[in-house]
Nucleic acid binder design. Sequence first.
DNA 1: TCAAAAGTGTTTAGTTTACACCCATGC
DNA 2: GCATGGGTGTAAACTAAACACTTTTGA
Lengths: 236, 236
Amino acid sequence: MFTNKNTYKPFVTVDCVVFGLDKSEEIRVLLIKRAYPPFKDSWALPGGFVIENETLEEAARRELHEETGVRDLFIEQLYTFGKLNRDPRGHVISVAYYALVNLDKHPPSASTDASEAKWYKLSEIPELAFDHLKILETATNRLNSKVRYQPVGFELLPEKFTLSELQNLYETILGKPLNRRNFRSKFLKMGILEQLERQKDVAHRPANLYKFNKEKYEELTSNGFEFAISVPKHKK
Amino acid sequence: MFTNKNTYKPFVTVDCVVFGLDKSEEIRVLLIKRAYPPFKDSWALPGGFVIENETLEEAARRELHEETGVRDLFIEQLYTFGKLNRDPRGHVISVAYYALVNLDKHPPSASTDASEAKWYKLSEIPELAFDHLKILETATNRLNSKVRYQPVGFELLPEKFTLSELQNLYETILGKPLNRRNFRSKFLKMGILEQLERQKDVAHRPANLYKFNKEKYEELTSNGFEFAISVPKHKK
DNA sequence: TCAAAAGTGTTTAGTTTACACCCATGC
DNA sequence: GCATGGGTGTAAACTAAACACTTTTGA
């Protein structure tokens, strides 16, 4: 070791903002009820201390699995929070991640470490421990800009989805109504959706199902294609 | 303290990618020659350990000042690097920042802690310590997308600049030639540039000088304006 | 036959791209 | 008077936005 033995070390945690889309087509966030102090019994983002021999992303995935049972989801680093008084235990730096998941695959249940885990609608977030509200706000902002420039929305949908479901997702995340015809033609013209069979047993004209063709997306991208969803300026 | 005394703590450092624009209109990066092991005498990004009672951004600004003498520049968090073997001293997590600065204000000199500091052209980066090349690549990618969607380019220019200087900057960062008339009309139409007096003592028709009107930009932004510079797809 | 959601075409406005010539200055 | 970079107008192609009616199914 070359470092001075007295080199100061803050604590390092990871926290995860897990976004999920339920059947009612609302975005929800996974929160856990803290089983131990500080903030015992408060709602908080799943997360915890980074341990030895573990990268940050590994820590995020481990904590998510331990506290909520979910595994193998789309995850990306969000921001690192290092304000001095964000944690009563001392100088605790939190590397925040956000994750996207489809709720059909990961139903609202599974809790092990934490005393409870629950999917909350964005409009009904309870008071949160630490600076977790700020982390959550940072994550929703990031999600909002991310869906416009990268095809991450599909992570929230089931593998097969209708164009209406896709549009609903975008409207929910962007908080604005989008024109149906423009939305459809835009996505279809991109050529990144693979058309599948039609819906069955719905009480209306059955919609076509599609899946996201990742290979095609990557091929187009490497040829200069840029994924972008424009948001009308004058509609609220 | 509520934490178990045995809670594991990695080291936490900050590293800064400082971009500067010199008079020859090339982007340069500030590197320091390391005065101590590990990687003694190697070139590296300025940075160092986070100390007590200090936020991450404070640490980044302090290290920058100590090692290179520069102060008060535009700085933003980039990404946090936490791979296990990125530092021979053990588990060292680095929170990276990037900064933008005009080289006229901060000439290539000032070194205190480090044995040497130097502005390198992006095309002539020497071998770097740790994973600093990766951090630098992450930063150039970020700068590339950032200038397209936020008016940060002005941070690299002197307060008063010509439209040609602005265009040069964009061409350098984006790595593509832009059409002069389209570039000019686009920026002028935005209404975020304030026209000043003309250049003096140049051996050609003197150009108009402009400055970035931040208040105007913020006013427009709050009314739905979105800053965006499109990059022609078919030109290399 | 009705309700419910799917699907479709066209016009208009705005933006992006591409292009070539004259202008003002110092030397 | 010439070299140097500054400055301008316009047409064509494309993209975004706005709009209303018909189709298919299950109940």
